[in-house]
Design a protein around this nucleic acid. Structure first.
Lengths: 246, 246
DNA sequence: CCAAGGCTACTGGTATACTAGTGTTTCCGC
DNA sequence: GCGGAAACACTAGTATACCAGTAGCCTTGG
């Protein structure tokens, strides 16, 4: 019996890459990167999934070259592990890395809000973002809230004059989101709670209370850890010994 | 008259790539990456220098493929700017980015030393690193001190359980080092001063004084800004209009 | 003399071919 | 039936060839 399709080791590639249409008139590599990254974060490509350059290229109807570029970027973020001459797999969920991401994010974002509070930044530009968050939270639409949440934190970094810092955070946050999206989307009211935490942080900034702003931001960021460990763990991963994850 | 070699626009490639020997028996792409990154940071490839994939490949006697991979990594760090169908140039010195790097680094490393102080970490493993720093500082050998300094800060992050955070910092720090190496190497006694600052930070950690540790680390990191702006600016950059830096 | 437009040489992006290395599978000897 | 070795299938890494797009140069028409 021939070896099964690598992707089929964990899932059906036809469904995972169903809407994976690549626009060949635009740069291909970034599109492949975004597609793979999205599917890793939302667990359509679960930890341990084998990603073959050749098969991905075939499924996307492109050559291996842009696929390789995309995978290299994912590897530099730590989202996939490339083992030369062996294969590429989606990185396993790592609690240490999760804690590290929260630590780093808290450190940067606490410094950001402290800076904003101490310099008396103008927060009026954030109003539309907050309104969008509230609407999404009202419907408990976490996926929509997630997008506006990202924009909110990115805007805070921009206001503090450190726009690139958000890029750094994102590369670490991806590891968190892989668990968060699985956890939070099923927790009723989490969006509204996060929205209220955002408001509390902004209130402290507006009042110039740097210590309070920092403390509230820290609590907000750490809240992702309170839902309890690696419960987003995929049981399939352990059941399939064909996976070559160390 | 034919167009001059692109590298010659700013410098002599024969000297810049003099010792650039690639070991083809090992993975090539990382070697090219390290080589280019080192030369960008130590200003042998100054801001605005044009990096041609084809010419780099020729000078290193390899194909364009690993060179492309290396340049893509540099681009993701922001050390080079790739403009499709136009060219790749070493990113200009950007004071905003410098300040941002210091801000981010301070945020993370202050949180690291605070955590170490609060948890009462064992610092004995750092002794050899400090000894090496002292030896380099005694001879005012900043390049050697620089390496041990990197290892020291990386070790602190490792002790705090956030080893990947140092990787993040490095990607931002590269922008700082491009200026720091030009500045510090000519400042007598800076190495010894940095060594003493390290000692002061460790003393505070050992004493469990989190606030003091954080404050001293912040001062240590901010010291790079005190030598005054973008004085590492290369006048050649402005004199050569062939450069296509926006 | 000057301006406008085509020409040319170069760029990075993509596709394809080939290589060295690895893990599995299968088949042969016991 | 079992153990081991060799062949196989697949991997990522590298080399090469081709492509579309850009920008400066040079010719040409005014």
């Amino acid at each position: 019996m021939p070896r099964p399709e690598t992707y089929r080791a964990l899932f059906d590639p036809a469904s995972v890459f169903a809407e994976a249409t690549i626009d060949t008139s635009r740069p291909i590599a970034p599109q492949v990167y975004d597609m793979l990254r999205t599917r890793i974060i939302d667990n359509r490509l679960p930890p341990g999934a084998v990603i073959s350059e050749a098969e991905t290229a075939r499924l996307c109807a492109v050559s291996r070259t842009p696929v390789r570029a995309a995978i290299q970027n994912l590897a530099s973020e730590g989202l996939v592990q490339v083992r030369p001459q062996v294969g590429t797999v989606v990185a396993p969920l790592d609690e240490a890395r999760l804690n590290e991401a929260v630590f780093v994010r808290a450190a940067i974002e606490c410094a950001v809000v402290r800076h904003l509070a101490e310099t008396g930044a103008d927060l009026t530009g954030l109003e539309p973002l907050l309104a969008a968050q509230f609407r999404a939270a009202e419907h408990d639409d976490y996926m929509t809230f997630f997008r506006h949440d990202e924009a909110f934190h990115a805007a805070l970094a921009g206001l503090a004059g450190v726009p690139n810092a958000w890029g750094l955070i994102q590369s670490m946050k991806a590891h968190v989101d892989r668990q968060r999206l699985a956890l939070m989307s099923s927790i009723k009211g989490r969006s509204m709670a996060a929205y209220r935490e955002h408001l509390a942080v902004l209130d402290a900034i507006s009042a110039g209370e740097a210590d309070a702003a920092e403390a509230r931001m820290r609590a907000h960021i750490h809240s992702v850890l309170e839902t309890g460990g690696a419960s987003g763990h995929d049981p399939v991963q352990d059941g399939d010994r064909r996976l070559r994850v160390p």
